[in-house]
Computed example of a mutant assay.
Amino acid sequence: MTAEQLLTADLSGIGEPRGEEHGRARLIRDSWAQIEPDVDELGRLFYANLFRIAPETRDLFPVNLQVQRSRLVRALVHVVQMIDRPDELTPFLEQLGRDHRKFGVVARHFEAVGEALFAALADTAGPVWTPEVREAWVHAYEFVSGAMRTAVESERGPATWFGEVVAHERIGWDIAIITVQAPEPIPYRAGQYLSVEVPQRPRLWRYLSPANAPREDGTLDFHVRAVEGGWVSRAIVAHTNIGDTWRFGSPMGRMHVDPGTGREVLMVCGGTGVAPMKALLEDIAQRPEQPRTQVFVGGRTWDDLYDFTSLRKFSYSNTWLDVIPVVEEDDGASGAERGTLADVVTRYGAWADHDVLVCGSPAMIRATVSRMLVAGTPLDRIKYDPFTVD
């Protein structure tokens, strides 16, 4: 298995399960390998089928479905790779189910989604879609929808939360830090992310990670970079107003520092991936005991390390923390380590006795995790969230 495949598989539980479940998983993976080159067509067919079967669902989505189709494919890839590891897949599906409560999802929608998905898979797969393959996918979807539906039906809290923008600070032309205050605290855990809807782009939900641990006053800080072609990110950075109301879905993600392991911690972050790391550091600082923690924060140039000063200041008052800047292009005057994050982190060793958390762009995560695996970092020590970037 290549490093790319390991990353797609979420880097957990690599092994060869046996028996009937293994046979179904193999059918699903083999058929997906044939379908994957045509995933754009798969996404188009799926939503066309869904809106035909359940027309009321059309109003849940934006006019432009490009991002939504991308999310569908990413979720399918995750399920395909993890379907024979239910204990690891179930928590993600439960989070996904709770998050879908923001759409007003009910039982009949799961049935419509299944029907739309099987029709799209059949049309895309062609002769690969045998009765045995269909049975394997139906069995997998029953598990996926069952876990999501159970989470939806068992949840008694709000489906969404609201917050008011109380601060908007521009940092350069492409980054802003926005503070939102919720009238009641949103029950997220440091390191998790939230789906967010802003008034400038209704129905275009995006995932953002709070840059702080939960606070009693309900305030959340978000670091947002305006990316090319990013309708929502550009609107947030340039057009957010004090007093705007943001809407949030249920918390998601598995980034967490477990206090029970007794291991030291390594954090690797690039760009606005520093946000969940700051939340985790704030959370660690509030604990009775803190593990020795090293943070590598990187960018192409020194200007990309927009929040390094505050991290370094935080480390001055927390002796358990070291912060190391990393830049790819540097004249040497900054004192930063030179190279990519993947280069520099593995230059220090395998980190085999650490709990490792990685956050940044998909390319940065892919490169860093791949290099760490080669260097000898255990698979089960690495945590990252592959669904946070659109």
Results as ranks from 00 to 15, higher is better:
residue 53 I to C: 11
residue 261 T to C: 10
residue 289 E to I: 12
residue 143 F to V: 05
residue 58 R to N: 09
residue 372 M to Q: 01
residue 258 D to P: 00
residue 272 T to R: 03
residue 113 V to F: 08
residue 16 E to R: 12
residue 117 L to W: 01
residue 42 L to K: 06
residue 300 R to E: 12
residue 143 F to M: 13
residue 211 A to Q: 04
residue 31 S to A: 15
residue 303 D to P: 00
residue 148 M to P: 02
residue 366 R to M: 10
residue 152 V to K: 04
residue 30 D to L: 14
residue 75 A to W: 00
residue 103 F to D: 07
residue 215 R to I: 09
residue 32 W to D: 06
residue 146 G to Q: 09
residue 221 D to R: 11
residue 359 C to P: 06
residue 364 M to A: 09
residue 274 V to N: 02
residue 271 G to M: 04
residue 383 K to A: 15
residue 311 L to K: 02
residue 258 D to G: 07
residue 315 S to R: 06
residue 61 F to S: 11
residue 316 Y to N: 09
residue 358 V to T: 01
residue 64 N to E: 15
residue 67 V to Q: 14
residue 174 D to K: 07
residue 86 P to H: 01
residue 77 V to Y: 09
residue 220 L to V: 10
residue 386 P to Y: 09
residue 191 G to D: 06
residue 384 Y to K: 03
residue 356 V to Y: 03
residue 91 P to E: 02
residue 247 R to W: 04
residue 375 A to C: 08
residue 165 V to H: 02
residue 163 G to V: 03
residue 384 Y to T: 04
residue 371 R to G: 06
residue 213 A to C: 12
residue 143 F to C: 09
residue 176 A to Y: 06
residue 162 F to N: 08
residue 314 F to T: 07
residue 189 R to G: 09
residue 212 N to H: 11
residue 253 G to A: 10
residue 351 W to P: 01
residue 239 H to Q: 07
